[in-house]
Design a protein around this nucleic acid. Structure first.
Lengths: 227, 227
DNA sequence: GGACATGTTCGTTGATTGCCGATGTGGATT
DNA sequence: AATCCACATCGGCAATCAACGAACATGTCC
C-alpha cells in the first residue's frame, strides 16, 4: 500500500529538511498544480489547515502530517494522469534486476528463513540486520557494468543482501566483492549449479554470510516483497 | 550551513515516511554504528529521549526533531571519517556542471535580476517560480549525452532554469528543448557570442523565457548558491 | 455592484510532543 | 556477586501541534 516512488521520497525529504516547511509544501502543491481546497478535501481536513501550514503558523508539523500531505499530493497527481510521478522514475541499469530497501532492518536469520536459504559458509559471525537487497544478473554485472556504476549495487545501505541469479559456481561474484571496498552483509546464490570451495573461503575471509536457495527468482521477489 | 547530501535526504525521507519511525531511526543509527548515548550527547538531550523515540513512545516526531536527529547522525558519521556519507555521492554526468533545487520557489524576475540577466524573448508570459537550476556545458550535452539520460537535466522539478555555458548562437540548445517533452521555465545563455533570431522564435513558441547574462560561470555559481 | 474562487488570519480546545531524571533490566566482564 | 554497559520504562510538566469554523482579504468574471 505505501507506494514507494522516488518523487514521494523526494517531496518528503524536501519538506522535512526545509527551513520553512510551509513554503516548501506550497512549492510542491503549486508545482503539481492543485488548490488548497482540493488538497484539504483529499486529506479530510478543513482548508484553513493547509493555509496554516503553508503560511508558517505550524513550523514543525509531525511526520504523520507530512506523510498525509505527501500521500495526498501523490494521489492527486495520479488522478490527474500522474504527469508528475511518471517523470521521476530513475533509469534502469542493465545488470540490476531489483533493488529495495526495508523501512526497518530485518534480522539476518529471518531473512534467510524467508527465502528458504541454506547457509554455505561456516566461520562467519551471525550477521545482524539486513536493511535491503539487490538482485543481480551475475553475468551482466561482471561484463556490462562500468566500475563507476558499481556503487549503485549498494543502494542506500551496505548492510544488505546481494542476490545473484545465473550463477554457475559462484567464484566471480565473490571475487568481485573481494575487490570492491564496500561489503554486503550477505550474499545469496539463486539455484547455483554448485558452490565452489574457493567462493566459500572468500566469503569466510570477508566475513559475509553466504547462502544458497533453490527458489525461482519470481517466487523470491514475491517473498521479499511482503517483508 | 545545511549540507545537502543525498544520504541526508534519504535518511530524512525514510524516517518521515516510515510506519514505525522509531525503528527506522534505530536502523540508521545502527547502520552508522553509534550508541544512543553518543547520539543524545551530539543533540544535547538526555539519552532517554532517543530511547523514547526508537521504542515508539513518540510515534510522530516533529520534523524539527527529525532534522536534528538526521543532522546529528551526519555529523557523527563525518567525525568517524565520513565512511558513510562518502559512499552515497552520486555519479557525475559529463555535461552537467551543476544541479540544484531551491527549498522554496524563487520568483522568476528575482532570479533574473540576481544573475544580471537580460530577457531576450518578448512574447512570453512572465514565468512564475523557479524551483531549481541546472548548469550545462552545451557542447557536451549535445554530443555526449545519451537520450536516456536527458531527463536527468530536469532534476526534481521541471519548473527550473537551464543555464547553458559555451553557447555560440544558441540554436542547438533551443532545438533540443523543443524536441524534449519536458520544458524548463527558463533558459539562460552565459556569455553567448550572439543570440540567433531562430532561438528567440523557438523560445516564444515554447513559452519559455530566454535570458542572457554576461557573468562568468564561477561568479554565477556563487550568486546562485546564496539564494 | 454582486457572486465566486482562492487563500489568510485567528481564537479555541483537546491531544500529543519534547524533554528530564529516576529507576529497571538483561547481558558481559571481572 | 558486583559492576559496567547499552538500553527501556515511566511519570510528569510546559510547549506545541492538529483541527475547526467563522471572519477577513483579493481577484476576477459577469
Amino acid at each position: 500500500m505505501p507506494m514507494r516512488s522516488r518523487l514521494r521520497e523526494r517531496v518528503a525529504a524536501d519538506i522535512t529538511l526545509s527551513d520553512e516547511p510551509g513554503k516548501t509544501m506550497r512549492k510542491w502543491r503549486e508545482e503539481i498544480g492543485i488548490f488548497q481546497y482540493d488538497l484539504s478535501k483529499e486529506m479530510n481536513v478543513s482548508p484553513s489547515v493547509i493555509s496554516d501550514y503553508e503560511s508558517g503558523r505550524r513550523p514543525s508539523p509531525g511526520i504523520k502530517t507530512v506523510r498525509r500531505i505527501v500521500d495526498a499530493l501523490m494521489r492527486l497527481d495520479e488522478l490527474s494522469g500522474g504527469k508528475f510521478s511518471k517523470e521521476y522514475e530513475g533509469v534502469e541499469n542493465e545488470g540490476i534486476l531489483d533493488i529495495k530497501e526495508f523501512p526497518v532492518g530485518i534480522p539476518a536469520d529471518i531473512f534467510v528463513k524467508e527465502i528458504d536459504g541454506v547457509s554455505v559458509a561456516e566461520n562467519v559471525p551471525p550477521a545482524n540486520n539486513v536493511n535491503g537487497y539487490t538482485i543481480l544478473d551475475s553475468l551482466k554485472v561482471i561484463t556490462g557494468m562500468s566500475s563507476a556504476d558499481y556503487h549503485k549495487i549498494y543502494g542506500w545501505s551496505s548492510q544488505r543482501a546481494l542476490i545473484f541469479v545465473g550463477v554457475k559456481f559462484g567464484r566471480s561474484p565473490m571475487v568481485a566483492i573481494r575487490a570492491h571496498p564496500l561489503k554486503p552483509a550477505m550474499v545469496v546464490y539463486v539455484r547455483p549449479e554448485r558452490v565452489d570451495p574457493l567462493a566459500v573461503k572468500l566469503a569466510e575471509l570477508e566475513k559475509v554470510c553466504l547462502v544458497r536457495t533453490e527458489l525461482e527468482v519470481t517466487k523470491l521477489v514475491e517473498r521479499l516483497s511482503r517483508l
